[in-house]
Design a protein around this nucleic acid. Structure first.
Lengths: 211, 211
DNA sequence: GCCTGTGAATCCATTCACAGCT
DNA sequence: AGCTGTGAATGGATTCACAGGC
């Protein structure tokens, strides 16, 4: 019984956050969790957890809590992360290599199915997962044939926009951007930026405050 | 003339976001920027930019805009990112290696000055930046001697808490955590979590919504 | 008794709109 | 004329507090 009104963005973000702790509980064979316990594990308020979940239906049992397994399944369904997503990556220097091997991605159904690089010395090389690195000129064709859904960019600043444009032209609507530039994009497309320096800036700021 | 009342957290986060575009303008020798232009480059509202900056003083010139160079210096001062910060890292698999080589870190003054791993086969090896990988047992001593300020964790889930505890015991108050677990920490310490799957979850959710 | 689900209340953040300076 | 700086207005998001069901 999913409610019709629009879900707050903050809720979507937090609901994704709940996945990891829930997976942790599953592994420890803990069947039921209260909003208070789950909130603890995510540094949020218990009422927040309940309200977030209530946007999508009534998953809990009063006096008891939430069935971990059910909740996990529901959240994955809500986020559409209950299926495989097909990723293509451009840039196979250290960061790119780290990502294609990243275990969390595979476990969660995010699968790299194509890899590209502009460095001709890298073309034709095989990655540990069996992928062969292709030239950028193959992006369009590969995107169609392999049905790439999400593009990942780990190039330097200079190349990033060009690569993003290639992705968009190839019909890839979503990009995860690790490069240090703000990408221009068509209205319809989505870009998520990852920038660790923001996290470090925040730590630096707080460290400086507390003296 | 810094205002005394507390700065909203959201403002701190956005102010850090303004750094990259400003650096971009510097490189292109653009001296002055309006709140509207800067807002554009960060996908925020111009009034937001002005309000954010006004928390820290009056940096702009009415009728003109903000001096890029000044603004950059001011923001760095505010965030305390106008100096070097000393990082120690644990876990030198792909992700760890990618981070120690990450150019943005060095450019912004985030310097890795120690590296540790629990894998005995890695101990004693040198990294491209000259660091030698040490065993975890060296964390406490190295933290003191080298004055490590921020600890970076790229181990797997099993090791992460143990490493975090070692950091905290060694007097390191801030941790950047790439591992997929929620770290328990003393009241006084800071943890920032990095989790790319959250970004992918968000893209998946949106892709699914728009069909 | 215990814990969820949720309207109401509160708190915070964003945006508007315009006065004030150059 | 142009763009900042900011009180006031708006709009969201968080938290409270309790009714409702196990």
């Amino acid at each position: 019984m999913v409610k019709e009104f629009k879900i707050p963005d903050a809720t979507i973000e937090r609901v994704a956050l709940y996945l990891r702790p829930l997976e942790g509980l599953m592994e420890r064979n803990i069947r039921v969790v209260s909003s208070e316990k789950l909130a603890d594990m995510c540094n949020v308020n218990p009422a927040q957890v309940r309200k977030d979940l209530s946007f999508f239906g009534e998953f809990g049992v009063r006096g008891v809590g939430y069935e971990v397994n059910d909740l996990l399944r529901e959240i994955k369904r809500i986020l559409a992360s209950d299926r495989e997503w097909r990723l293509g990556i451009v840039g196979l220097d250290d960061m790119g290599m780290a990502l294609v091997q990243h275990k969390d991605f595979q476990q969660r159904g995010y699968r790299f199915i194509a890899a590209f690089d502009s460095d001709s010395r890298k073309i034709g090389k095989s990655l540990p997962n069996g992928l062969v690195i292709q030239p950028l000129s193959m992006i369009k064709q590969a995107a169609k044939e392999l049905r790439i859904e999400i593009g990942v960019i780990t190039t330097d600043a200079v190349e990033a926009q060009r690569v993003a444009d290639l992705f968009f032209e190839a019909g890839i609507m979503a990009v995860l951007n690790f490069s240090p530039v703000h990408l221009r994009k068509p209205e319809c497309c989505l870009v998520e930026n990852v920038d660790f320096t923001l996290n470090l800036d925040h730590l630096a700021y707080e460290l400086n405050r507390i003296g």
